[in-house]
């Protein structure tokens, strides 16, 4: 289970966190593979990882993966300001977000109040993009 972190939650169950880098899965068989494609995952032959392409079916992706991994999973965002990984559930704007759960860069609740956030974001984003 490379590149997928396992975090301890309060209820002491293991949670698989899917990050923006992608997911490595054990062999799933033809049928499950087809299902994964249907819900919007894409398989990259070079990195041998699954990536989320369509964001409409994140809920189904969660379900199918839970079935395969037999573990509850959640999606993680990376804070572009401080680098911390966090789930959408902790974000005050979760309810109004149109790309919720899709693993990507965002800003975590600790950084939201920082002064000159706009400039700070553009700076970090510029570095990330490689300007």
């Amino acid at each position: 289970m490379e590149r997928c972190q396992k975090l301890k939650r309060g209820d002491r169950r293991l949670v698989v966190v899917i990050t923006k880098k992608g997911i490595k899965l054990p062999y799933v068989g033809k049928e499950k593979f087809a299902e994964l494609m249907r819900v919007g995952l894409r398989y990259d032959k070079q990195t041998r990882m699954f990536r989320i392409e369509k964001t409409e079916y994140l809920e189904q992706i969660k379900n199918v993966l839970t079935e395969i991994l037999k573990e509850p999973i959640t999606f993680a965002q990376t804070c572009i300001i401080c680098g911390r990984e966090f789930p959408c559930t902790e974000c005050p704007y979760e309810k109004i977000c149109r790309s919720k759960d899709f693993p990507s860069y965002c800003i975590c609740k600790n950084c939201l109040g920082k002064p000159e956030l706009y400039r700070l974001y553009l700076e970090k984003s510029g570095k990330l993009v490689g300007l």
């Binding site: 392409e53 974000c91 704007y93 790309s99 990507s104 965002c106 800003i107 706009y118 974001y121």
Partner: peptide, 17 residues
């Protein structure tokens, strides 16, 4: 290269600016 809806925290930062 997929693009997604821009996230609320970023939009807010822009609007404030």
């Amino acid at each position: 290269i997929p693009f997604h809806h821009v996230r609320p925290p970023l939009l807010l930062a822009l609007l404030k600016e």
